[in-house]
């Protein structure tokens, strides 16, 4: 009775509604809470276009907290969905953009563009610039393509994961090499960017960041049907009439866009892609992408908004986002590994 499809759909609908409310609540909290304490009625007035009693507050709310809250919302959803796509396509619950080296690929792309722009005196080469976004996209998709290539003949998922880690190491060693040739100013900028900061996206950069993330998310929505077939493995999916090559290309494009957009602007943000799909599956108790995809998006947004909130709690300065995400992400992964015999999606 508890599991007839009608109530089942009802449950996932209820979960999506609750998560949507939670995301909305956290998003608003991100506007009202920050390192600088601003009275809530002031925040409210500024958001509705009124004048603030302290001039800097207006700047903080509209130029810093608002873009940062939107960035956290989108980046959380983007990374979580990238992780989900990777876990499904590689049939491995421990896959994710960080573990497979895809965000290291994006970082490499950014580093190359930074160095080249300095040599060629190009603008836009610094993190967040259009050239850096392009570099990140090329780097992320290149690594993803390499892993997809290996996956055609390395059948063992664990081995594939290790290949991903190796490719990631190769990319980071190239980054270190590039740092060697960079100016100390560039190394500093790169290091700061590498710590991860959702506040990097300015109001002017927000439209591009948002369109790239939304494009990646949109493609993932188109892939719901093939993703469900992929749960059976590629051969079964092929037998169900799924065009494997097109699906893989779209997956490449989607994960590339999602990972590159976030990494280029905010630095490599760890653990969201790996852990949020697990939170989503545990809440939903299902691997069906029809509901898992929206739940993963909402969970990703909620988790990163929460992390951002925590990172701005101290009154003097902020904690780097990458110091906060593992606190939520790592326990989830450990919990899932320890309890894998009891968790349905690990057994089958």
């Amino acid at each position: 009775m508890s599991n007839t499809p009608a109530t089942y759909r009802h449950n996932s609908g209820l979960l999506i509604a609750i998560l949507a409310l939670l995301v909305a609540g956290l998003w608003v909290a991100n506007l009202f809470v920050g390192s600088v304490s601003i009275p809530s009625q002031e925040v409210w007035r500024i958001l509705w276009g009124g004048d603030a009693s302290v001039e800097s507050w207006q700047y903080i709310i509209l130029e810093s907290r608002l873009p940062q809250a939107v960035t956290a919302l989108l980046a959380g959803a983007a990374l979580a969905v990238a992780g989900l796509l990777l876990q499904t396509v590689f049939n491995n619950p421990l896959a994710g953009p960080s573990i497979l080296g895809i965000d290291t690929g994006a970082s490499l792309g950014v580093a190359v563009v930074m160095l080249a722009s300095n040599m060629l005196n190009l603008a836009n080469g610094m993190p967040g610039g259009i050239a850096a976004v392009g570099g990140a996209f090329v780097g992320a998709t290149a690594i993803m393509a390499v892993i997809l290539f290996f996956s055609t003949f390395v059948r063992d998922n664990l081995m594939l994961l290790i290949i991903g880690i190796m490719v990631g190491y190769l990319a980071s060693s190239l980054i270190s090499l590039l740092n060697f040739f960079a100016t100390s100013q560039q190394v500093h900028a790169y290091t700061m960017w590498g710590l991860g900061n959702l506040g990097n996206v300015t109001l002017q950069q927000l439209p591009l960041f948002a369109s790239l993330s939304l494009a990646g998310l949109f493609i993932s929505v188109l892939l719901v049907k093939p993703l469900n077939a992929m749960l059976l493995g590629t051969r079964y999916a092929e037998n169900l009439g799924i065009d494997i090559r097109t699906t893989r290309n779209l997956l490449l494009l989607s994960t590339g866009l999602l990972t590159a957009a976030v990494t280029a602007y905010c630095g490599p943000v760890a653990f969201i892609g790996l852990s949020v799909p697990h939170i989503a599956r545990l809440l939903l108790r299902s691997s069906n992408h029809n509901s898992l995809l929206p739940v993963t998006m909402l969970c990703g947004a909620a988790v990163l908004l929460l992390c951002n909130l925590i990172s701005t709690l101290p009154s003097d300065g902020i904690i780097p986002i990458n110091a906060v995400t593992p606190i939520i992400g790592a326990p989830v992964i450990i919990y899932v590994i320890v309890n894998q015999r009891k968790i349905n999606y690990f057994n089958g």
């Binding site: 049939n91 108790r285 691997s287």
Partner: peptide, 8 residues
């Protein structure tokens, strides 16, 4: 073939 359908 190995599948990942325990959660379906």
């Amino acid at each position: 073939d190995r599948t990942a359908i325990g959660g379906l």
